[in-house]
């Protein structure tokens, strides 16, 4: 499902800035992520797409690692440059 520049976070290459559109997960998990600043509209940069190493993003100045399964539930859109 990659309509209109929407894609799963796992498809994003290193160094790309994206905007979060939707998280495909249960309410509890979404709220947890929201508390860490990962909610619809949040802009962040993919530092490392897991090759090699963990999936790392930079969000509001801090580094976060995401499990691959987690990253596969996050739908994003490329930010306009």
């Amino acid at each position: 499902m990659t309509t209109q520049g929407q894609t799963f976070l796992t498809n994003i290459t290193n160094g790309t800035k994206v905007r979060l559109l939707k998280i495909d997960a249960g309410q509890g998990l979404k709220a947890r992520l929201a508390a860490m600043g990962l909610l619809a509209g949040a802009e962040f940069k993919v530092i490392n797409n897991g090759h090699p190493g963990p999936f790392v993003i930079e969000l509001k100045g801090s580094r976060m690692v995401l499990g691959r399964g987690m990253a596969g539930k996050i739908i994003v859109k490329l930010s306009e440059r």
Binding site: L38, V65, G69
Partner: peptide, 12 residues
């Protein structure tokens, strides 16, 4: 129970 999906801050 759900294994906490992995989201964690990477402290410097």
């Amino acid at each position: 129970g759900e294994t906490i999906p992995y989201v964690m801050e990477l402290p410097p």
